[in-house]
Design a protein around this nucleic acid. Sequence first.
DNA 1: GCGCTTTCAGTAAGCGCTTTCAGGATGCTA
DNA 2: TAGCATCCTGAAAGCGCTTACTGAAAGCGC
Lengths: 340, 340
Amino acid sequence: MPHVTLEDVARAAGVSLATASRALNGMRVTPHLRDRVLAAAAQLAYTPNAHARALAGASHRTVGVICHDVTDPYFAAIAGGVMRVAGDNDLLVMLASTFRDPEREIAYVSMLRAERAPAILLIGSGFEDARWERAMEAELKPYLDGGGRVAVVSRHRSLKVDSVLPENRAGAAAMARALLELGHRRFAVLSGPRALTTVADRLGGFRDELVAAGVPLDPADVVEGPFTRDGGYQAMTELLDRGLDATCVFALTDVMAVGAYAALRDRRLRVPDDVSVAGFDDIPIVRDLAPPLTTVALPLRELGEKVMELALTENAGRRRRILRMNGEVVVRASTAKVNG
Amino acid sequence: MPHVTLEDVARAAGVSLATASRALNGMRVTPHLRDRVLAAAAQLAYTPNAHARALAGASHRTVGVICHDVTDPYFAAIAGGVMRVAGDNDLLVMLASTFRDPEREIAYVSMLRAERAPAILLIGSGFEDARWERAMEAELKPYLDGGGRVAVVSRHRSLKVDSVLPENRAGAAAMARALLELGHRRFAVLSGPRALTTVADRLGGFRDELVAAGVPLDPADVVEGPFTRDGGYQAMTELLDRGLDATCVFALTDVMAVGAYAALRDRRLRVPDDVSVAGFDDIPIVRDLAPPLTTVALPLRELGEKVMELALTENAGRRRRILRMNGEVVVRASTAKVNG
DNA sequence: GCGCTTTCAGTAAGCGCTTTCAGGATGCTA
DNA sequence: TAGCATCCTGAAAGCGCTTACTGAAAGCGC
């Protein structure tokens, strides 16, 4: 037989469907009957069909989390925070990775809509792409209208939903200040794809602060690569091939900084003796690198906890709530003082 | 209005429910009508209710993956492989983390059963616990009988399902040989919880090989801690507090080795000059540590790809298939030669 | 032009569950 | 003991969709 159904249980217990349902859901039922139902259910290894249940109106407890890549420690850390809060609220979490494909991202939202997930969390930088924005809005609008809840980390341009924003711009500016303080005057940046809002913010914040201090950042000193370890490796290698002039390299994410470390090691260059390196995010691993990485510490787990909480909290007024989360520069051994 | 239903679409298009359904599912329908249906659907931002659809018998495409902790690079890497294959097969992946809680693991299986997921993948070491085994079996049996597919990575004791097994025992033995080869004779082991099958296998393989070479491993030299970075840190610290006698420390996982590095650094001890360190798994980050870690390289992504493939392939005979995956010792700079 | 097959839209029967509604016991008040 | 409120149980109506099954229209050979 393909599946044990509630009807089987009811029949085995000699009660009606309604009674069986009530017994299983803990509503008032004569103890005598309740026991018979539970026993029958256990005996038949009955598992209610979640779809039928959802269809029949019972609310379900699986929230969706969409990020670029769970494999990336940045997202893993945030996801960890989300799962903590979800666990406390007896929710199950469904993690999806888009691998930075806007199409796939929208496909996932669509499928979560279809599943009637009570909440959808979008983690990670949005795309600066009008077409994408419109498509996303088209998916989200009816979902929200249908009572769905949406909250996002770090994408803000147009989406009118609750969000928690890492202070990318301010964090990058603070990093610029810290590095200037150490005496650096010639910088290079390992950047990610320009289409990501995070890139625009971090790069802009860094550059503006330098410029404000009278230290220009030549566009040629900004090398672009994928937001991955290998992207960092490539970008750093490219910089090296051109003949590195900078005393300090700022990677827009820690993951890229890891790649940069490897590229430098392959060239027998030492950090920070030959060149200083700084990152952004403070993913857990960077304090275990040699040397430990100077970076902007974002409270990643907390970001995750906050979005989940935002999505959980009723927001009747339907006004967008924004939580700004500060990053803090943590100077570790990867950045050296330079004698001006 | 809460939700646009197929009926709304059908009415708007002036056709019957059946026709609307067929048009949306790409079955033969007069082009004229088909267009009207599609237009209506688009106009109303219609999304089919996945639950209703599943209930009505359409197969659904979300497989469940259960692991201990997605945040751990080991699982993240395997999950990456799973998602690759799933993506190629147009499947969505639902990732769940149990945080090593057997209860929660069973709860997730139960809920995936309820969702009628076409496949469930269990990633990671099983628990050596008869009660757990029985409960798990009780969940899995009816699921399999109902046509569900199950495949696992690295738990083998009792579960009668397709599995891909990292050669933990052989890998650990090979590591022992490699380390003996380097001249080491006094070892310490950073171990995980004994209840995990992986621990038993790796520790056993390592110890047996040493013993075979006439090098005993005193139980006091095996320190147990959680299978985490902090677990490694603690265990290493404990070892150091006792007065480290070994020339080489073998961490049962790379993640623990990372913690060990930190503990050693805090004591101003150098790897490998003061002590050699080896790990197991070859998670991506370890080649970026300083020094790069000697470890047993498991093809993690591939493990993930294989389980997903196992689950996808029909296995009519219902005979358990086992894929054994070899690990290979990769000697990097964290282990030094010792002059015997 | 007649009976045949073929094509395609519509009708209706569920999928398995929750929940409203109605009715039969039961227990209480007077 | 009659009369009413209280509790439970069971019957039945969907939730939104897919998919036989039905039947009308159209195409074909003779």
